Amino acid sequence: MRIAYLHGGSIPSLWANNVHVMRMCDAFAAAGHDIALYALPGTHPTADDPYAYYGVRHRFPIRFVPVPDYTPAGYRQRAERVADLLVRDGVPDLIYGRDPYSLAAAADLAPFVYEVHQIREDLSPPETEHRLLAAPRLARLVVITRALARDLDAHYADLAPLPILVAPDCADPPQPAAERVELPGRAGVPRVGYVGHLYDGRGIDLILDLAARLPGLDFHLVGGTPEDRDRWEQPCGLPHVYFHGHRPPAELPGYYPRFDVVLAPYAEQVYLTGRLGETGRWASPMKVFEYMSYGRAMIASDLPVLREVLTDRVNCLLRPAGDPRAWAKAIVELISDVRLRRDLGDEARRQVLDRYTWRRRVDEVLVGLGLDVPDVVGSPGAT
């Protein structure tokens, strides 16, 4: 099937939403579909090859469509250009995307799937998303959590029932590292790891609190823009805390296996870069699934949305986000109990391979659309 993926972000860049898009396009290609990505030109200062940067296996075509200016009017102008390109390139069998402006401009060309990770209140005009969800050729609305599905149904009650499918974020099966990552720190000292951005709500303050309580362990934080890294690293002052900064997604397989325990200390309110949006109520963090894929023993915040995937003492330990003493005790328990670490990690890996791979996800989001897509027996997640 010919699929066009419409994205309003830059490829490559530092931002996690673009990792999600590239993983989905890679999985569409792995499933045998003819996928083309329409995205903004990259903003990463040094990454010349987006396929190598993201570590994807397929070199699907990427059509770079710039925006004349970063305003709603500019994005709408770009959306018309994307729609024109779809016609010029040959209208696909299915349009898929996370860019409401481009999807709205192309909504009459072919059946389309809209994937959304938050309720969009930043669009102009404000009714953009409402009109998109009311479009006759909307085939499916894909969301990442049941919490978001419920809130969208309530928010757009006049359009109910929406054709919603819940498809959590995912991970690829463990990939071999291109080269061994040598971490700084003390020989023989257990390592506690965190991989992800350093935005507000990501629990970086909790991690530094834990490091102060547990000086016998080394703490490694992988990720973050230079500005965010400086914000946390400069006042830290703890010699056993190491900030590694942003690493290309393709390099992360070299880090996960080096950690004895990994942390997902999300607060109840999780903000996007620059506090441009708060998504904690609906989050399905990709890093959680990547931790699981590599069989790492994880401690995560005990939040309702994370309980959609995580179960205490089954695939992780769950602890209250605001209780550093409980987190410290959990770390000590995992470090001292090798069997518990192994059992949690093994079950987490099994669940990812059974339920939460990108390849499985693309089958789930396409099944039942009447577009010559084979049924996926037992696919979970539909509402």
Rank of each mutant, 00 (worst) to 15 (best):
A104H: 07
Y75R: 13
D354E: 15
I207Y: 09
A39F: 03
Q234A: 14
A27Y: 00
I331S: 05
A27F: 03
D34M: 09
L138D: 04
L317E: 00
L210Q: 03
D34R: 12
S124Y: 08
L133E: 10
G193Y: 00
P168M: 09
E129Q: 12
A267S: 13
R307Y: 05
H220T: 11
P66I: 11
V352Q: 00
G223M: 01
L37G: 05
P41K: 04
Q118N: 12
G378C: 06
H155G: 05
Q118W: 11
A83M: 02
L238C: 08
H117S: 10
L138Q: 10
L272E: 15
Y271K: 08
E364N: 10
G295I: 05
D363Y: 14
A110Q: 02
A264C: 13
E290G: 11
V56Y: 07
R2K: 15
I11N: 05
A134H: 00
Y101L: 02
D218Q: 07
A330I: 02
A29V: 08
V91M: 09
H220V: 03
R2N: 14
R137N: 13
R150V: 09
P92Y: 00
F28K: 03
V362M: 08
T273P: 09
I207L: 15
W15H: 13
V288Y: 04
N18F: 06
A283I: 15
T357M: 04
D337S: 14
R131D: 15
V332K: 02
E333D: 12
P253T: 06
A177H: 11
I119V: 14
G378S: 10
D108N: 12
D372L: 12
